[in-house]
Design a binder for these strands. Structure first.
Lengths: 112, 112
DNA sequence: AATACTGGTTACCAGTTGGTTACTACAAAA
DNA sequence: TTTTGTAGTAACCAACTGGTAACCAGTATT
């Protein structure tokens, strides 16, 4: 089953964006992929403890959002590769900013 | 009841950051506050359909994260004001980037 | 014939998120 | 005395998220 998007009747842009990247695994998958190409199994290992079910769901969703490309080869055993689209790669520097913000230790004495 | 943070045993930075801003209302509250100061009731109106319970939870959580300041006045009826800290304001341009990314229409012919 | 490999899917389930409604405290105003 | 206004809190609940374990398909290997 697919993820249910949170309500966004007004088409709020930030809500829409958080619908795409604001879940447990999507940012991790984007980071792991970076400029590389990985197969399903490799992603499962490199992202950590993500379950195959959730990984499959996220990848499908990210593909629909235009964040990544799924390429399936007609081989046996199956071979499926995933890589970020240009739009997906554009998220990398933004995620970097978010990380910097989050790591930053506030040294200020005044709260504001 | 407070929000339960998602598992982050490895201390993954992006997971930590998404724990803070990756929920339905936090980015909206940050946008609504901006550089202004609002009372609880004003926030409830300006953020839209957020329930008072969830708003109270989010504000408490954001205060603990150092994103905003809660100032309570000893008056009757009660008066409580909220405003972003410097750290909270630093999120504004990042949220702008996320919005731009999300609004951007891909005009490219090639998927990558 | 059974097992392995890969990329999933299915059924089931616990925990979390966020919503609704009613309620509280306190003082002032009607 | 009842109502008004503010800032919440408490009890309850439905929906969604993500996890586990088992299973499938197709081919190749043992």
């Amino acid at each position: 089953m697919r993820r249910k998007l949170i309500d966004n009747p007004n088409g709020c842009t930030i809500t829409h964006a958080m619908n795409i990247i604001g879940n447990k695994w999507t940012p991790i998958i984007i980071y792991v992929l970076g400029n590389k190409t990985y197969r399903f199994g490799e992603l499962a290992v490199r992202t950590g403890k993500i379950s195959r079910k959730v990984l499959a769901n996220q990848l499908k969703e990210m593909e629909e959002c235009g964040i990544l490309i799924r390429r399936s080869y007609d081989e046996t055993p199956k071979k499926v590769e995933y890589r970020l689209t240009q739009k997906g790669k554009e998220l990398l520097p933004i995620l970097d900013l978010i990380c910097s913000w989050s790591e930053e230790i506030s040294l200020q004495a005044t709260p504001d």
